[in-house]
Design a protein around this nucleic acid. Structure first.
Lengths: 189, 189
DNA sequence: TGATTGATGTCAGCTTCTGACATCCGAGTC
DNA sequence: GACTCGGATGTCAGAAGCTGACATCAATCA
């Protein structure tokens, strides 16, 4: 009766993840996802820029969370301290309740280079945001850029471990450990 | 007369770069590139997996160069030393003669998120290669992963600067400087 | 009731990318 | 010189991703 039920966005996300799990990313068509969500293909593209993006919606929230945390940090140009603030903020975005869903999503992403590619672009965007945020605190450009690369690198490695089978430690713990490993490497030079 | 001139691969690469510069990446069609190179669209796809890839051919060489250098390094599990070896190897792949071409290519890549995305995937691949190479030397997995993230981060930042307008320093110098900045950040924690 | 606005549907069309098969050129063989 | 064989290319058809333009429907408010 009704032409459209509310929540098309969420329905599309769920439908896509399910279909990707069932048939594989490539086999699943946008038309198929849309049909499962009860809308047309055209509507899919009104919510998501492309087929891949349906798995990456909400990435801006993560950036804003991190950027706000750094911006609100006590005034300092100590890059290391600001990086710690950024990592703490990121950790809060991945509570244990989300791990099960993150694993499902991660399995799909890992299966397809095109999706890994998009994930890397999101991380690059995160790097750029962090670098800018650091620079606003007075960190010199090159130092800010390198710090952002390493910080997001720590996040990336930790996230991969957080999602890995059997892993139970929190993002905060894993990031702490990764950061210590980074220290151990750099100290030795 | 002749059905095909040798060197289709190089002709396609040149034609693509030129056309991208003239009309922009999105406006340029694969058919247009192929026509300019004197070949059909189908042949383009025999050389390059997709439209973007024409700007990234040769990435495997870079990986091999780095992997070989690390593999040939004196036996040690000192990650910092191995990272230095990897960065030195990477620097040799970017002599000043290549800078002009790298700038043209870089301008196109920077103009299009889809291309930036592919570039990030290549860097991710480089990270994976380095992480594996470090692990083969006995570096613990997490440490290897974090070290690879930071090392490729240093490379990335340095490469961006190397290609930037007005920059004249060598990749080796820029990487050295970036590495020192990284040290300064991490030391402070 | 009527106007307005936002979400959706419909449709046409371009482009990317792939599979299948035919064709041509060059190199070696007899 | 004729034959053959393999690699590179051309031809063709078609699926799927994506976009612009325009119509339609439902909720809201005047």
């Amino acid at each position: 009766m009704v032409r459209w039920q509310p929540g098309a966005f969420e329905r599309l996300r769920s439908a896509a993840l399910e279909l990707f799990e069932e048939t594989g990313y490539e086999q699943a068509t946008v038309a198929g996802i849309a049909a499962r969500a009860g809308v047309t293909e055209r509507t899919f593209y009104r919510y998501f820029a492309d087929k891949r993006e349906v798995l990456f919606a909400g990435g801006e929230d993560l950036q804003r969370l991190m950027a706000d945390a750094v911006a609100a940090a006590p005034h300092t140009d100590d890059a290391a301290r600001l990086v710690a603030v950024a990592l703490d903020a990121l950790a809060t975005a991945f509570p244990d309740e989300l791990r099960a869903h993150a694993r499902r999503r991660g399995a799909v992403v890992k299966s397809q280079p095109a999706l890994l590619e998009r994930e890397m672009l999101k991380l690059e965007s995160l790097k750029a945001t962090l670098s800018t945020a650091l620079a606003k605190h007075g960190v010199a450009p090159v130092r800010a850029a390198v710090a952002a690369e390493s910080a997001v690198g720590v996040f990336h490695v930790s996230f991969a471990r957080w999602v890995a089978d059997g892993e139970e430690r929190s993002m905060a713990e894993l990031q702490q450990e990764a950061l210590e490993e980074l220290r151990a490497v750099v100290m030795w030079v």
